[in-house]
Amino acid sequence: MIEHCKECVDLLGDYVEGQLPPEQEKALETHLSMCMPCITFVRTYKATRRLCRTALAKEMPSELMGALSSFLGKHVPGFSCPKSKQGQPEAVAPDSELKKG
């Protein structure tokens, strides 16, 4: 039985990753079903992870790829990066996926 928001917040890390034991998960969800502030807290906690991941996903500059390739070419016998792929952007999860929970 979870009576206080503090206990709920303390368990959130494991909860959002599905790592809580079933009994604790049930107790937490019971608390959430009765506590609007905690529901808001959970939603903004999850949004924080999602937003940070979206904002911090960055492309590696092509010049840096070139510099890395040149460096390794001097130290690794037979090293030759496939040049045709060097400047291609990396596929990232579409916005629709990132906007989920």
């Binding site: 206080h4 502030p37 949004a47 937003l51 979206t54």
Partner: peptide, 20 residues
């Protein structure tokens, strides 16, 4: 008493989507 103080009544997670 272990209650959120102040309680987070402002849910900015939806606005966050708009401002993504």
């Amino acid at each position: 008493e272990g209650l959120l103080d102040p309680p987070p009544y402002s849910d900015w997670s939806q606005r966050a989507d708009e401002k993504m």
